[in-house]
Amino acid sequence: MVWDGTSLHELRADRIDTVNNHGTGCTFASATAALLARGGSVQDALAAAKSFVTRAVAGSATWRLGHGHGALDHSGASWPVHASRSRCAIAAA
């Protein structure tokens, strides 16, 4: 859920049944910050970051790494980015 000061936006995705979710918050924040730094709008950056995290969780869903909550598949979650100097447009994967 994202409140932009006037309206509430929901970032939805299907639930992925896995214990490999360690780092989802940090990954989401880092992806959002990187996209904002490239000139993307807040709404576009949040939507693309959510999509990236969802793919990273899905990519690691079947991994069995030690005990507890495992890592995300950051390398398998990359997305195509088309950017100009003035703005950043994220192509949804």
Rank of each mutant, 00 (worst) to 15 (best):
M1A: 15
V2W: 15
V2N: 06
V2A: 14
D4G: 01
G5L: 14
T6M: 04
T6C: 13
S7Q: 14
S7M: 06
L8I: 14
H9I: 12
E10G: 05
E10N: 14
L11I: 08
A13S: 14
D14H: 13
D14S: 14
I16R: 07
I16K: 00
D17L: 11
D17S: 14
T18M: 04
T18P: 03
V19D: 02
N20T: 02
N21W: 01
H22F: 04
H22P: 02
G23E: 05
G23M: 08
T24W: 00
G25R: 02
G25W: 13
C26H: 05
C26P: 07
T27N: 01
F28L: 08
A29D: 03
A29L: 12
S30V: 00
S30C: 06
A31W: 05
T32G: 08
T32C: 11
A33V: 13
A33F: 09
A33D: 00
A34Q: 09
L36Q: 05
R38E: 14
R38P: 03
G39C: 10
G39R: 00
S41M: 12
V42Y: 02
Q43C: 10
D44V: 05
D44G: 13
D44K: 00
A45W: 06
A47Y: 03
A47F: 02
A47K: 12
A47P: 04
A49G: 12
A49P: 02
S51A: 14
A56S: 00
V57H: 01
V57S: 01
A58V: 09
G59P: 01
A61Y: 00
A61W: 08
W63Y: 04
W63H: 14
W63Q: 06
W63V: 07
R64D: 15
R64E: 13
R64G: 01
L65M: 09
L65A: 12
H67Y: 15
H67W: 05
H69D: 13
H69R: 05
L72C: 03
D73W: 08
D73M: 02
D73F: 03
H74A: 07
S75C: 11
G76S: 03
A77L: 05
A77H: 03
A77F: 01
S78H: 11
V81E: 10
V81Q: 08
S84R: 07
S84V: 10
R85C: 06
S86T: 15
R87Q: 13
C88R: 12
C88L: 14
A89W: 08
A89H: 05
I90C: 10
A91W: 11
A91S: 07
A91I: 15
A91Y: 06
A93K: 11
